[in-house]
Structure formats: structure tokens, C-alpha cells
Write a protein that binds this DNA or RNA. Structure first.
Length: 336
DNA sequence: AAAGCGGGGTT
DNA sequence: AACCCAGCTTT
């Protein structure tokens, strides 16, 4: 073991966060897999409540493999990036049929499992000496070595470094140690170098240039999108359409939305009342949606009872949640 | 309000 | 290698 490795591992032993998926007295590959897939899209704090609900309802591979996609999506609802949930269900069924993957290569063959997740599950759940690189490891690496690259070039160097520095006797703990350092000490802003266990190994710290790494990426170019959304209501029911493949939120039910001219073409020119504006930002899109209430029973829509919908709100004193999509799952859009 | 971060998939 | 997915946290 190198000095670098022992310094980090000793630090982790004393400072590891107490997370739900680290609690079990025996390591459960299913639990590790679920936590890793959820963590792909967001942070520990956001995942925990979803993870606990999920594991209560789907405690085993078998219970998840038998569940309907619709029900699984309900438990995913709010985590976003719903295609990953569908990939996960497909992969779970593959594992139930074929048995558990026994190598990084076999993990990679499952849909929704990329380099990071394959390394994480193989090492943490199965003790396979596999390296991994996530955003934390990439940042830690860039600072330790003053690597000036960005994007895929930085990632490639970080993978090389992670493989060279893997602690093969306990790869799962080692990998979690690197990520824990990035998440709690070597943070994007205001890193706590004063309490870092490996600052003496860090070129950026030694040179006083921690803030310069990783190198900044070019600013993203925003795309502004303007939509109208028509909330059809008739006799206490709400009329929705299903997003088609290739559209945003494909497969989900939502109020008709689009350019006003498109909506007029599809639904005529019904009497309608403007009820608010939604602003929503996702990836590089700034989406502004003008919301209208429409009293109509247009036959092209599928009609849902209020109790099939989640937190539908079409008027906006204060901040209300407008949820346009159901019954499976949908992003939440906040009224201004 | 803007910037930054995030991992898999596709081409 | 660059873009898409249809989001969240931090500043």
C-alpha cells in the first residue's frame, strides 16, 4: 500500500458518511446497484428518500423484475431522466434470467450500465478489482496532478490514473474513498484543503492553484424555447395526450403543448383563459410555458380523473406545482 | 438568474 | 468527440 492510499483509507475509516446503502451488515449487490443508478442523476441528499421508498417496495431483484413498468415509474417519479428507469427494469429482468454479472464486461452488457456504474457495482458489491471515475474522481485527479484538460480528454487521463492507483485488496472501499473525498473535502467550490488527508500529495495545493482545477469548460449556449400548454378540463376530468417517441418526455401523458399555431391546428380555437407562466430549465434549454385553462371535451384527448393526476394546479396564487403529465411519471413544473 | 455538475447512450 | 437526454444544487 502506498502512503497516498493509506492516508486516504485511514481518513475514510474515520469520516465515511453513514448512508442507507452502506448500512447493511452484508453487501447486497441489488441494493448497491439501485443506489448507483439513482445516484447517476443527482446527489446523495436527493436520492435517499427515493432509495428508501424504492427498497421498501422492491426489496429484491425478483420483486422489481415482476413489477409493472407503470408502477416502477411511479416510484421513480421526481428523479428525472425516466428512460434510465426503463433501462433499469430491462436490465433487472436480464439479470433474473441470466444470473448476476461476474465481471466489468458483463455489467457493461446491461442497458443503463456504463463505465462508471460497471466499475462501481463490480468493486463495491462484488470486490472485483475494478477502477471507476465519476465527477468526484475526475476533479480530485485534476487537482492532484494539475491536469489542465477538460471533457473527454480529462476523463481518459483520470481513468488511466484510477486504474494505476487502485487499491486492489479492497477496491470497493478504495473507490468509495476517492468519491467521498470529492464529495466532502475536494468540492467544486471552496474545497477544504486544510483538512484534506492528501494535501501533501496534491500538486495544485502545493502550488496554490487549487481554484484553477479542473480547468473551466466553455460556457454553454442557451436555447430559449417558448410553448403554450392547454389544460383541458371537462366535468371534473382533465384531457391529456401522450408524448410521442422523439418528443420531450416521450411516453408520458401531459397537457397538450406546443406553438399556439400547432395547438390551434390540432384542437381548433377553443375559448381559453390564461392562468400563468412556467419557467423550466433543463440541460441547455430555457423553457417558458404559457399555461391556459380550456373548457372543452375534445375527443382526441384521453381523460383522467383528478385523483389519477399528481398535484395538478392550474391557478397560481403563490408557488404552486403544475404537474401536467400522468399517470406514470412526470417532471414537476413550478408556476411562477 | 446563472453557472456548474452529472453519467449513459447515440452518432 | 460531440451532442442529447428533458434536471438538480450551488452560488
Amino acid at each position: 500500500m502506498t502512503d497516498f492510499q493509506s492516508a486516504l483509507l485511514n481518513w475514510y475509516k474515520a469520516n465515511a458518511r453513514d448512508l442507507p446503502w452502506r448500512k447493511a451488515d452484508h453487501i447486497d449487490p441489488y441494493a448497491v446497484w439501485m443506489s448507483e443508478v439513482m445516484l447517476q442523476q443527482t446527489t446523495v441528499g436527493a436520492v435517499i428518500p427515493y432509495y428508501l421508498r424504492w427498497m421498501e417496495r422492491f426489496p429484491t431483484l425478483e420483486s422489481l423484475a415482476q413489477a409493472s413498468e407503470e408502477e416502477v415509474l411511479v416510484y421513480w417519479q421526481g428523479l428525472g431522466y425516466y428512460s434510465r428507469c426503463r433501462n433499469l427494469l430491462t436490465a433487472v429482468k436480464m439479470v433474473q434470467t441470466q444470473g448476476w454479472p461476474q465481471s466489468v464486461q458483463e455489467w457493461l452488457a446491461l442497458p443503463g450500465v456504463g463505465d462508471y456504474t460497471a466499475g462501481a457495482v463490480a468493486s463495491i458489491a462484488q470486490g472485483i478489482p475494478a477502477a471507476l471515475v465519476d465527477g468526484n474522481v475526475e476533479r480530485v485527479f485534476a487537482r492532484l496532478t494539475c491536469n489542465p484538460k477538460i471533457n473527454s480528454a480529462l476523463k481518459a487521463d483520470a481513468w488511466r490514473w484510477a486504474k494505476e492507483n487502485l487499491y486492489e485488496l479492497d477496491p470497493g472501499t478504495w473507490n468509495q474513498t476517492l468519491m467521498e473525498l470529492g464529495a466532502t473535502i475536494c468540492t467544486p467550490k471552496n474545497p477544504r484543503c486544510g483538512v484534506c488527508p492528501v494535501s501533501s500529495h496534491c500538486r495544485a495545493f502545493q502550488n496554490g492553484v487549487v481554484a484553477d482545477y479542473p480547468s473551466p469548460k466553455p460556457a454553454k449556449e442557451w436555447i430559449e424555447v417558448f410553448h403554450q400548454a392547454w389544460v383541458f378540463e371537462n366535468a371534473g376530468k382533465f384531457g391529456l395526450v401522450q408524448a410521442q417517441p422523439g418528443e420531450w418526455w416521450a411516453g408520458m401523458w401531459h397537457s397538450p403543448r406546443g406553438a399556439e399555431s400547432d395547438l390551434v391546428e390540432c384542437f381548433g380555437n377553443p375559448e381559453r383563459e390564461r392562468v400563468g407562466t412556467i419557467k423550466h430549465v433543463v440541460t441547455k434549454h430555457k423553457i417558458t410555458v404559457e399555461v391556459y385553462r380550456v373548457k372543452s371535451n375534445h375527443p382526441a384527448l384521453r381523460w383522467f380523473n383528478r385523483n389519477e393526476l399528481d398535484e395538478l394546479a392550474i391557478s397560481s396564487p403563490g408557488r404552486k406545482i403544475l404537474t401536467l403529465v400522468n399517470p406514470a411519471a412526470q417532471p414537476r413544473l413550478e408556476l411562477e
